[in-house]
């Protein structure tokens, strides 16, 4: 095995892992605040489409990326409205997004390109050459020349780690995911904190979608996400709800995928190679899985007083009732 084989393998690994990693980070952030977002899949597909369509119309892929993220935020706003403020079931709303996303995408796609299969080529984001680093012999090809999403993704991992563990906002987000009642007693607004986390998660999920359509292949296809959203959801749990862990878990998926693509001459039936990433995860999970601990209030609703039936006229009472529901 030569050095270049290893470099190629590492590059391929990171390329494959990036969309999943972005989706995973989206899950991580909103689950840290106690809101399950299982609609990542749907958000990814609609953002991938919006990104491609915007890039197709404006000829500017960066605008496409922006549009994709915006749509991601809008989609997750539905979770904010329906789950956080109206106390709807988080999981069901997420599942609804998984239907809405592809539904709307293909609907508009049929209008725009007259088919529901594949879009025309769209302008995509070019790889970024980093001036000095690209000339370093071995490190150069690993670090330089990738599509921008790879760098953005790593940046987000670092930023999210900093925000979650080293800022007061991060502390609040984590507390809201562990014990919203305590946060409320201190006088902070649980709903706003949770909403902000979900919206940021939505933007990340949007970015994940855009990285699929504009980062690598510059085209949008029906079923492009291929359950990557669910994989991201799993990777988040596997990564222990931490940004670095999530990224590493996604990298594990990426490396297995890159490995399977490189094992064709081994004589193993292709079906077994296709199982490889999943079997590895399962085995890894058997070893590490016992320690997984979700944020205590992960997926636990904290009903907004406005959504509680028949409120009494005194405000304090409403809050108490909300607290009681949250404890239950």
């Amino acid at each position: 095995m030569s050095v270049s084989t290893i470099t190629d393998f590492l590059c391929s690994m990171i390329r494959t892992a990036t969309p999943i990693a972005l989706g995973t980070l989206a899950c991580t952030f909103s689950e840290r605040a106690g809101v399950i977002n299982i609609g990542i899949e749907g958000i990814m597909i609609i953002s991938a489409f919006t990104g491609a369509a915007t890039s197709f119309i404006t000829k500017n892929p960066w605008l496409g990326a922006l549009a994709g993220m915006t749509v991601g935020v809008l989609m997750s706003a539905l979770i904010v409205i329906l789950s956080i403020y109206c106390n709807g079931d988080q999981v069901v709303v997420g599942i609804g997004l998984n239907l809405l996303g592809p539904g709307f995408s293909y609907l508009v796609m049929t209008k725009l390109w007259r088919n529901r299969g594949t879009s025309p080529w769209v302008p995509g984001l070019k790889g970024i050459e980093i001036p000095v680093i690209k000339d370093i012999p071995i490190l150069g090809p690993i670090l330089s020349g990738h599509n921008p999403f790879i760098y953005i993704c790593i940046g987000i991992v670092v930023a999210m780690h900093y925000v979650l563990y080293h800022t007061s906002y991060g502390l609040r987000i984590r507390s809201v995911g562990e014990n919203p009642n305590a946060v409320a007693t201190v006088g902070l607004n649980v709903y706003k904190l949770r909403s902000s986390a979900v919206l940021i998660g939505g933007a990340l999920a949007g970015l994940a979608g855009v990285s699929l359509s504009l980062g690598s292949v510059n085209v949008f296809t029906n079923g492009m996400t291929a359950n990557k959203g669910f994989l991201a959801y799993a990777a988040n749990r596997f990564g222990q709800w931490s940004p670095a862990g999530s990224y590493l878990a996604s990298i594990l998926f990426g490396s297995m995928e890159a490995l399977r693509i490189r094992m064709q001459s081994s004589g193993i039936p292709p079906q077994f190679l296709q199982m490889l990433p999943y079997i590895t995860t399962l085995l890894a999970l058997t070893i590490t899985g016992k320690k997984l601990r979700a944020p205590a209030a992960d997926g636990v609703p904290y009903p907004h007083p406005i959504s509680v039936a028949k409120p009494k006229k005194i405000k304090e009472k409403k809050n108490k009732k909300a607290d009681k529901n949250a404890i239950d």
Binding site: C86, V92, G101, P102, G103
Partner: peptide, 17 residues
Amino acid sequence: ITALQGLVVIFVASPTL
């Protein structure tokens, strides 16, 4: 139809709406 399914799911999921 898929979009309609999505709309139904998210609204029916939130009777508290």
